[in-house]
């Protein structure tokens, strides 16, 4: 049997927000180590990889590996019924065709349970090779969201150009051109406000705005975001999830015709 208890169910709400624009359904793979999800968006251009370690949960039990195919619109309906401060317990029997979500209010005076049907999904897992990236940029997640939103007004693509000095985001289209430069922060009071760049080689790559904007739906999960880039390989946009793990988005760079 599978059982996972989460005192603050807001984390799962945020995770759902972070994936439901890209994915209609997904398989949650549960094992002793935790819950993992890997899925491509419908157009197979981007990939979402979620890792929630079992030790982040307040209680976690997984006797046998379990793959839960979930319609994310259905799960969203259920998670909307939970208060942010509710205690969440997810339960499923081995080989079950349904999963139960139980919400308990902090004072335990209200207990709700929702049973959701699981679906069979043809899951295609991709092997993601270990990569030494040429540039690793860490920056405030809110700033990244703002830049993606602002630049998407100017064009369908964003060019990200990283050097030792800083990172430049550019877009161009009918309106004109836009450039946003961020320098490494010299010293900041709070670590989460810092912009840091680890660079082996300068990199310039072009990405579709639409997907970057979808990735920023994860902003609520972490104050910082990490962008990893190398020439001719997918960009990795990573948000850490507190004590649990991370969500990573991969996006293939656009190539010359």
């Amino acid at each position: 049997m599978f059982e996972a208890r989460l005192v603050q169910c807001s984390m799962l709400k945020k995770v759902l927000e972070a994936i439901k624009e890209l994915l209609n359904e997904a398989t949650f793979d549960c094992s002793d180590a935790g819950i993992q999800l890997q899925a491509m968006d419908n157009s197979h251009v981007s990939l979402v990889s979620l890792n929630l370690r079992s030790d982040g949960f307040d209680k976690y039990r997984c006797d046998r590996n379990l793959s839960m195919g979930i319609n994310l619109a259905s799960m969203t309906k259920i998670m909307k019924c939970a208060g942010n401060d509710d205690v969440l317990t997810i339960k499923a029997q081995d080989n079950a065709d349904n999963v139960m979500f139980m919400f308990e209010s902090q004072n335990q005076e209200k207990v709700s349970d929702y049973d959701m049907k699981l679906i069979n999904l043809d899951q295609e897992h991709l092997g993601i090779p270990e990569t030494d990236y040429s540039c690793i940029i860490k920056m405030p997640s809110g700033e990244f969201a703002r830049i993606c939103r602002d630049l998407s007004q100017f064009g369908e693509s964003v060019v990200i150009s990283c050097t030792k000095e800083g990172v430049k985001f550019s877009a161009a289209g009918d309106v004109g051109a836009a450039n946003i430069k961020l320098a490494q922060t010299a010293n900041v009071d709070k670590e989460e406000e810092a912009v840091t760049i680890e660079m082996q080689e300068p990199v310039t790559l072009t990405f579709a705005c639409r997907y970057l904007n979808s990735f920023t739906k994860a902003t609520a999960l972490s104050p910082q975001v990490q962008l990893s880039m190398s020439a001719d390989v997918p960009l990795v946009v990573e948000y850490k999830i507190g004590d649990f793990g991370h969500i990573r988005y991969y996006l293939a760079p656009k190539i010359e015709e």
Partner: peptide
């Protein structure tokens, strides 16, 4: 203009 390649061009199916 530029083309948007699919993820499978970079990562192999396991």
């Amino acid at each position: 203009s530029r083309l948007q390649p699919e993820m499978k061009l970079f990562f192999r199916a396991r």
